[in-house]
């Protein structure tokens, strides 16, 4: 039996610079591909000699895995610096995903903050592929500045494919003519049907808390609000103990959990 700790070699087949510090890589297997992933799962990405980081899967078909990576530390810097043709190691896919598909006829509300759009992208792709399955597909995106928006060249295509895409930024520049404000302010424009809505929320932890609280205040039941949590992950397979959040081992029980599980934990300081 192959150990879950052994990375598989993947070659970078495409590289797109999303923002000043964020890169999207398409990775194709050089040896055996990893098992198929579910939206919301992550892999452990190994940069040769530098180390390993957990990265959510942003897409990919036929064995290819797409990762959108923000350069925030030594390992992500090395991953972001990978060129087409370079090799990275992947393990996974690990963790509990978003839980798509949602029930037939549901309204999907995807709320993304910053880099949090990356793990939601497979949910969006699924919803647009099976657009008839759902009533409304709403994508609410919050970013720091217009220059920090991910996949901005795809937004129009998503709208054409049937998503209601709304974008807001914390700080506008002179070119920006869209919304300015917190992503939760977008809820004021919408009439959400609490009985039909499944919400998928991803972004910085505080952003997710404010967003989930705002959704709850609009009557959406906590289990229907899915959030993707984050703690230090070293092994991805439940052995190393680092990613504990109270009762949860996030690499195994998460990273996606219902807000009914998350809410009581996120307000405990230093849990």
């Amino acid at each position: 039996m192959k150990s879950a700790m052994m990375p598989q070699p993947y070659r970078v087949t495409a590289r797109r610079e999303e923002t000043a510090d964020t890169v999207t890589l398409d990775l194709a297997p050089l040896a055996a591909p990893l098992p198929p992933y579910a939206p919301g799962q992550f892999t452990m990405v190994y940069a040769f000699g530098v180390g390993e980081v957990p990265i959510s899967i942003s897409g990919g078909e036929n064995g290819v895995i797409t990762h959108t990576v923000r350069s925030v530390g030594a390992v992500t810097r090395a991953v972001c610096a990978a060129r087409v043709g370079d090799t990275l190691g992947l393990r996974g896919p690990f963790g509990a995903g978003w839980g798509v598909p949602a029930p037939f006829g549901a309204d999907l509300v995807l709320v993304a903050g910053g880099i949090g759009l990356a793990p939601l992208r497979p949910v969006l792709d699924h919803a647009l592929r099976e657009r008839d399955r759902y009533r409304h597909v709403l994508l609410l995106i919050g970013a720091r500045t217009p220059g920090d928006l991910l996949y901005s060249s795809d937004h129009a295509a998503w709208a054409r494919a049937g998503a209601d895409v709304r974008v807001t930024v914390d700080r506008a520049d002179r070119s920006w003519t869209g919304r300015v404000g917190l992503v939760t302010a977008l809820f004021d424009e919408l009439w959400l049907d609490p009985g039909r809505t499944t919400a998928y929320v991803c972004g910085p932890e505080l952003m997710m808390r404010f967003t989930a609280d705002a959704l709850r205040a609009r009557g959406i039941p906590e289990p229907a609000i899915r959030v993707s949590l984050e703690r230090n992950m070293r092994c991805g397979v439940g052995w190393c103990g680092h990613c504990q959040l109270g009762p949860l081992l996030l690499c195994r029980d998460g990273p996606v959990v219902g807000y009914d599980h998350a809410a009581p934990l996120l307000t405990v300081k230093e849990l």
Partner: peptide, 23 residues
């Protein structure tokens, strides 16, 4: 109150910090 709270959250500059494991 809602707008004040939203403003306070924006003051935190949440997205300015690294947001991590989701890459």
């Amino acid at each position: 109150v809602e707008r004040l709270q939203a403003t306070r959250v924006r003051l935190l500059d949440l997205y300015g910090f690294p947001t991590g494991a989701k890459p």
